[in-house]
């Protein structure tokens, strides 16, 4: 090989190695941070598309409607728990410590992000409610399709 080609080969292979390293790192970081979305029914029976149930300890997002009368508060602290339900009928209990969003109410669709504690319990580190009266995350809307919305707060 003449020196010029050798130099080019070196540069090219260095580029390839560097690029694949970078891509590998990005994909690895991505793998660690993907949170699948489940409805309460899917947590109990497995995902609609694949039938796979989440494992205990897995990070996930769950979306559903807050069951009426299920919000329980700890009198001493900001611990709170509530049940989520969807149109499949499954019920999952969510535990959360902190301040619930302004639009969190019973009978509302919400999304929580957290860790699966056991088959029907999720420990959430974040609870999101929809941001205005019109908007609901599409996934939650799908999960609640056909259910009666209890709009007690509306005129």
């Amino acid at each position: 090989m003449n020196p010029r080609r050798k130099k080019r080969l070196l540069i090219t292979s260095a580029l390839v190695v560097g690029l694949s390293l970078a891509v590998g790192l990005v994909l690895f970081a991505l793998q660690q941070n993907i949170d699948l979305f489940y409805t309460p029914t899917e947590i109990i029976e497995g995902k609609k598309e694949t039938g796979i149930k989440p494992e205990v300890g897995q990070r996930l997002r769950i979306g559903g409607m807050v069951l009426n009368g299920s919000v329980k508060r700890d009198p001493e602290s900001l611990k709170v728990s509530f049940d989520l339900i969807d149109n499949g009928g499954g019920i999952v209990t969510v535990f959360f410590t902190g301040i619930l969003p302004d639009l969190f109410r019973e009978g509302q669709g919400i999304v929580a992000q957290g860790e699966l504690l056991n088959a029907t319990q999720v420990n959430a580190f974040e609870v999101l409610a929809k941001h205005d009266e019109e908007y609901m995350p599409p996934e939650v809307a799908e999960a609640l399709e056909g259910m009666d919305h209890l709009k007690t707060d509306k005129k």
Partner: peptide, 24 residues
């Protein structure tokens, strides 16, 4: 771009909804 569009692609090809966390 990857972090923003991947959830879209993931959903459209039928693997279910995902979200990509801030830590990424």
């Amino acid at each position: 771009l990857l972090g923003t569009l991947l959830p879209l692609v993931h959903k459209e090809i039928g693997l279910g909804s995902i979200s990509i966390g801030e830590p990424f």
